[in-house]
Write a protein that binds this DNA or RNA. Sequence first.
RNA 1: GGGCUCGUAGCUCAGUUGGUUAGAGCGUUCGAUUCACAUUCGAAAGGUCGGAGGUUCGAAUCCUCUCGAGCCCACCA
Length: 875
Amino acid sequence: MRELEKVYNPKAVEDGIYDKWEKSGYFNPDNLPRQAKPRQGRGKSFSIVMPPPNVTGTLHLGHAVMLAVEDILIRYHRMRGERALWLPGTDHAAIATQTKVEKLLKERGGKTRHDLGRDKFLDEVDKFITSTKSTIKNQVRKMGSSCDWSREAYTLDEPRSRAVRTVFKMMHDDGLIYRGERIVNWCPGCGSTLADDEVEYKTQKAKFYTFKYSPDFPFAISTTRPETKLGDTAVAVSPKDERYKEYVGKIFKINFVGVPLKIKIIADRSIDMAFGTGALGVTPAHSMADWQMAEKNNLPIIKVIDEQGKIRPGFAEYSGKSTTEAREKIIEKLKAAGLLEKEEEIENNLSVCYRCGTPVEPLPSLQWFIDVNKKILKYKKSLKELSLEAVKKGVFGQKKIKIIPERFEKVYFHWMENLRDWCISRQIWFGHRVPVWYRGAEIYVGVEPPQGEGWKQDPDTLDTWFSSGLWTFSTLGWPEKTKDLKNYHPTSVLETGYDILFFWIARMILMTTYVLGDIPFYNVYLHGLIRDEKGRKMSKSLGNIIDPLDMIEKYGTDAVRLSLVLGTSPGNDTKLSDEKIAGFRNFTNKLWNIGRYVIEKTKGESGNKKLAAKTLAEKWILSRLNSVVNEVTKNLDEFEFSQAGEKLRAFTWDEFADWYIEISKIQSNPSLLVTLYSLLLKLWHPFMPYVTEVLWPNFDEKLLMISDWPKVEKKLVNKKAEKDFEVLKNVVTAIRGMRADYKIEPAKRVSIEIFGGIKTKLLEEQAGIIKTLARVENLVIKKSGTKPEWSVGSVVEGVEIYLPLAGLIDVPKEKARLEKELSEAEKYLGVLENKLFNKAFLANAPKELVAGEKEKLKLQKEKVQKIKDQLKSLS
RNA sequence: GGGCUCGUAGCUCAGUUGGUUAGAGCGUUCGAUUCACAUUCGAAAGGUCGGAGGUUCGAAUCCUCUCGAGCCCACCA
């Protein structure tokens, strides 16, 4: 038998164990041994695809939670005998990675990607990735993740790229992909488009002008950007606004500071009557909101500003001028013409580029889109409809996606119902290049480049979420018809943070229902975000980042995993502190010491196959264990990890260690002890894989990782034994308390046998204790022979101890409570009786209802009687 | 403006469809200690479940209003 250190030292064992697991090959479900006897989940497959961490990133707590939860699921289902596949991968994270490499290049020699050119720049990115990819993968291993590395995928590798091109072509052929104009955030400084999250907002003071376009226009508008008004094609007012009602629908041909405009008056609900004059000049080409209004009202779109931030040709003297110059000039002219009514200072939000600080210019540009409302021929439904039904009522033979926690289904519907066409092109270089080639007026869309000379590929790349949307099936080999795809798709669970519900989960549902005619997964489990102990987001600038790897170093992986899963609930943020992890480290050590004790006491014991109990304590612990197995299994099936862990922790520490182990020191039953112990390790294994594997008695022959999940033996659940043991615990507690001047109130006596030594100390001091008890009022010591009310355990030296149970409960309080309960129960009983005597009710109510009420009445009668009995037994 | 969530012990949170005396961990206080474990063991104190009203025989739980905290989306002319 192995010698175990007094204190568990995770560092000494973790890497070795992970190695052993990985080398065993069991992370790959194809290698799992076939069991002779059928197991609970045999033959079923269970699959999770890992949300791929960014290739260039390092492991953070978000990843750590994800890995902990997914590993619990995989290990649990593997132990159930299922083919459990956890498919790992990494994400190329287009924008983030490109930005990072650009920054590096700048630091190294001040070069931009434009200096290098596309090919050389992408080489640089590749170089960077090869050096960072292994880092993140090793960190995933550190968490104990039992994922199948042989199936590892990368969003930008060839199989995945092929899937992307294939889907693009499919959608294009189905007419779901189109090219159109849309307003993008354009930075004239960097000469590129910006993603929404690359735009920063600065509060600034701005001049807010109120003026009429021309003397013959009936009313004034307000703006901070008069120069864009050169492109106005409408004025929008609130439909409720009485001031302008008469003008709605009319068209005015006017001359605005030397430029002719055709302005239509439209009504739009988004207009705030109280802001400015309540009338908004609509500039479709240079404002996102105005663009939408233009689409709704079929307004012409006039581009005013070009990519350099200058006024385009065709706007009289303003052409070629910068926006600020044009603005000043226009104001001058308006003043001269007496059209400027007001000029005030206001605070507004200016959007600027996060890199160079240049104000962002919204400009229309040509982009690729996915039409979410167009009916797909083979389904006769649109992408939006498919995606909604998948969660709402089920699609494709009623396969339904369940989102946990449920409230996020509402959030999902709300978002999906308001879904607009999805812009999938991005003006960056790193990523999946749009598989479209041009030659003059010819356009070619295909999985492979076209034959022939002179074709030029579209320079844009695809939104990362396009490839991520295919993740559940591209990782399983699609578009090939693979065995994996057949066996493991739809996947069982998709587990991730709620912050990417829209970005990712919604896109996966959208893409998968379209491509496969199937759902991507049955369950979505959304974990919360991890915050610091004050509830703040972790960020570099606050310096409050907890690095999971530091914590693993300090407390061990198992403790870190527990701290991320216990005391958390899905969709809710969790506060994490050093102390919390330390607390779970203590628990890991507790389990370790339970192991030390059991291993030492049960040398040479192999454990029972059949569980049987003789003494009360054994009946009790077996009953409790089976209840716990039952509940924990249920919890894990329902994704209630925290509750499962909490129950296990309470059972392990408060019942198994504090009571059963203490008793086992006197009532020795090594084979039962080692059996219980091995079941306990199995139950804990999904949560804390390392320490349980080290403590596993069969360590050298068979891994705990692939042992069978405990089965519930209903026969062993013994509620009476549990109740009796509770009484016994109370008695022992009372005795302990007495030694510390515990007061026992005189009351009804209950006969209890205290069996031999709950603790060693008690055994040694039995005589003393009995004497102490005898001195207490109302306590009688009798020779055995009389029939005790509860008969528990063995008799101490032939003596029964009559202990006032009331010392353990507050009699007057208990009485008052029961009386209140009785009066309520009797009142309800009366209500039920009245109902059942009511002829009208009996005549009109449906049969089932009457039967139900009768059943209720019966139950209520029993309840009343029970309370009465309890009351009686008290006095 | 639209949507969502939370408010329970000093702190962090459980509390499953309404139903015994509202629970746990940490912290605090008191006590113990060779015998698996000081990363231990025993015990105590601490809550009108944010507030008001309603439904009910019965509400932390359901409904309405209200106060407070936060998140997401849209917008910021």
